[in-house]
Design a protein around this nucleic acid. Sequence first.
DNA 1: ATTACGGAGCTT
DNA 2: AGCTCCGTAATA
Length: 745
Amino acid sequence: MAPSDLPLFDADLPESSARGATTRATVPVLLPLALDEPYTYEVPAGETLAPGDFVVVPLGPVKRIGVVWREASARPVDPRKLKPVLARLDEVPPLPPLNLAFADWVAQYTLAPKGMVLQMMMSARLVFEAEEPRFGFRGGSGVPSRMTDARQRVMAAVADGAVWSKKRLMDAAGVSAAVIDGLAEADALIRAELPRTRAFAPRPDFAFASLSDAQLTAAGALQQTIAEGGFSATLLDGVTGSGKTEVYFEAVAEALRHGERQVLILLPEIALTNQFLERFERRFGCRPGEWHSAVSPKERARVWRGVALGEVRVVCGARSALFLPFTDLGLIVVDEEHDPSFKQDDRVTYQARDMAVVRASLGKIPIVLASATPSVESIVNVQRGRYRHAVLPGRFSGNALPDVEAVDLRAVPPERGMWISEPLVGAVNEALAKGEQALLFLNRRGYAPLTLCRACGHRFTCPQCTAYLVEHRLRGRLVCHHCGFSLPFPKACPSCHGEATLAASGPGIERVTEEAQNRWPDARLAVLSSDLVPSTAALREILTRITEGDVDIVVGTQLVSKGHNFPKLSFVGVVDGDLSLATADPRAGERTFQLLHQVTGRAGRFGAPGRGLIQTHFPDHPVMRALVTGDREAFYEAEIGLREEAGYPPFGRLAALIVSGKTRYDAEGYARALALAAPEASRIQVLGPVEAPLAIIRGLHRQRLLVKAAREADLQAYLRAWLAGVDAPRGGVTLHIDVDPHSFL
DNA sequence: ATTACGGAGCTT
DNA sequence: AGCTCCGTAATA
């Protein structure tokens, strides 16, 4: 509803004479802007407003929609500044009290302005705009003079009492519009407004999956947490293919039965596939509410309303679904809980898995964290006794985990200009000979990560970032992966003007595809890379071809590592196992282990035992060792030891302060001033500033400070005290705070 | 986020 | 002296 065409509260009547004398009631109203505190507004006489109500208020010269908050800001406001609330949005269900508490919590933890957290909770624009009512038909009492087969079918469809849209009714009854019009004419159908929400009411007992004993035990443990009630966190820990999804589906069913509460299943966006939603539908008889970036604005509004009214019982969504207005949330599941995409790095930086635990704790409900390769944080929480542990020891199919080996690139390098070594070639041949599928994995888009001139050594870099341009040969362009800058692939070297001197350096997914095409000209190839798959429909089609065995070799980036099962896949070759080890990330080792474990785990899930080969320059690296020996526990033990020694999370707390400015001088100046103003504290140290590894992005120069705190230290209080004593940045300089950073770039 | 304000540099 | 432009502060 646009604030301008609202039915406003009645204007004050004669008033003004009494005005100065009476103190009027006020309410705090939080606006979805970069504001830390709610503003105070007058409540019009005779109105009552409750926390959570959506209201329209004047802000400067404009009207804005905000939410009545719980507590007013501590600072009193000059009463002369007070303006009245203009209207309450009665059409919009209020924000539930827990959401208010949750927003406060997230804001205080991340140091993001409260209003920005509210903005995330209001990210369904159309909910707040007046919607044209849509009409459909429901059954009426009129009897038509003639009853045909077609008319019978229509009447049978509307016998359920629901309001059907004309289109849906035509499809369901297999009739034309004229049939419906005829029935409406006779009052056998009555025009009625279509509901503005969509109910998603999964049935907990629709179709039981047959579970193994281990699955039943784990499912029982999860159901127990629901029966007990109250907050609990359980790590559902099982190797790839052990059937974790079926297990937590039973927990979902239990939550639906138990007090008919709502359930949130968080997944990495990339794993929210049709395959997953179909599995859900097979188990529960209907699709869940979906929430991710590809959901249309209209559907977002319907889901948001449905969640707020309690009609949407289950939401499957990406991280932002955590901020939906659940009225009666009874269970949260975070699948692939280790996944890095749960960390949001722009706007409000938050870790959705961690915030989900907070949400569960505030709501006094159970949460299930599921993964085959849990985060170190979660493992440590199990060790500390804070999380329960439900383990699925074996693969559901009974197959052994794939046999993984490292290929030492120092000993058996691929031929010059090639990237697939002899052992990988042999393994692919073997799979092809048996009529099985092979996957070549390289987590790098494009043809080559660097283009250089053989004559003068010129390297193509992005004009606005500290990064090389990546050649995308299929698009015929050089592309910056950090800012999106691109230029057509040049004909000559811009530095020495030599022609035909430019050489691609290093492999990308396109180059590996080219090599595979040359090596296996008769094999049917499929490429899975986010920039080479034009649409989700095309992706679905490729995945179907792979599943049905119409593909021999899959070449893919990270896209292949999640959410899809390839039943005929027996071999996985990792082209560059070292890629993610070299990133500026405190979790690089953990990430690499998780990624490669998941990817190689794709091999041989159903039927034939699988095999994985990882090309690496560091076959002795603990990560490679753990992957090869399959000794997951040894890896965690070593990694936990390293973290503890370094005081890294979860044994200490980190926060990054990123200062960016138009020039290095600007950024450095403010960053240094910040460092000088850092308060002394016994268990907190401030490191830096240093130039960020990615020193310039989009033309902005960046400096980083790192705050390292002991686990017991109040990091947020320290940061607030620090920033309170510093002038706000200006002159185009910005300061970004990242509590618990996952990347040091 | 949006808008009003005010100083710097430029036009008249 | 008057006017536009941009950076900055304030919005209750």
